[in-house]
């Protein structure tokens, strides 16, 4: 007997929650307990009184699983609201990465050239290395890292995705 795999989709969810101890554990735990995937997760409080945090989760699953993820998140007592941004459409998502590249001579120049194309900033430099700060959609960062790996990629730190709906309305 073999276990069958099904077609999956990538969805970005925006979740507003009470900013209190254990909320992240509840959310991450719900994903592991029910066998759902977390591709990326970012969290920070977004209100002046520190009462509410906004969590952006990127998850992959079949459409039925995504529907369950949203419903199960919504069921948590600490969760105020869940919005499936991918389902809703018309949103921007951004991620920040710090990319360390080592090399000398032509490799150094090439790294700077590519960084300019990708609007990456140099935030640290030594005679043998750079740390670039690059912002953009996840695919753009993936591509930048891929190019840098040909030049002398040392390590990468990524923030995960933050996302927001376009236009003047709040969701």
């Amino acid at each position: 007997m073999h276990i069958k795999q099904q077609e999956t989709e990538r969805h970005t969810l925006s979740v507003t929650v009470d900013n209190e101890a254990g909320v992240l554990a509840r959310i991450a735990g719900m994903f592991t307990a029910r066998g759902y995937n977390i591709d990326s997760l970012t969290v920070a409080d977004v209100t002046e009184d520190d009462s509410i945090s906004r969590i952006t989760i990127v998850t992959t699953g079949t459409p039925a699983v995504i529907e369950q993820v949203v419903a199960q998140l919504d069921r948590l007592v600490n969760v105020h609201r869940v919005i499936d941004l991918t389902e809703r459409g018309n949103f921007v998502e951004r991620e920040l990465a710090l990319v360390k590249v080592a090399g000398t001579g032509e490799h150094r120049i090439e790294a700077l050239r590519l960084a300019e194309v990708y609007r990456a900033r140099v935030v640290d430099a030594t005679t043998g290395s750079f740390v670039f700060e690059v912002t953009g959609a996840s695919e753009k960062i993936d591509k930048f890292i891929e190019l840098m790996s040909e030049i002398g990629l040392i390590e990468v730190a990524r923030t995960g995705v933050a996302a927001i709906v376009r236009g003047k309305e709040a969701v």
């Binding site: 039925a64 369950q68 419903a71 069921r75």
Partner: peptide
């Protein structure tokens, strides 16, 4: 009463 029970196993 539980939204998560809808479409969980049967559509």
């Amino acid at each position: 009463i539980d939204r998560a029970s809808i479409n969980k196993t049967v559509r």
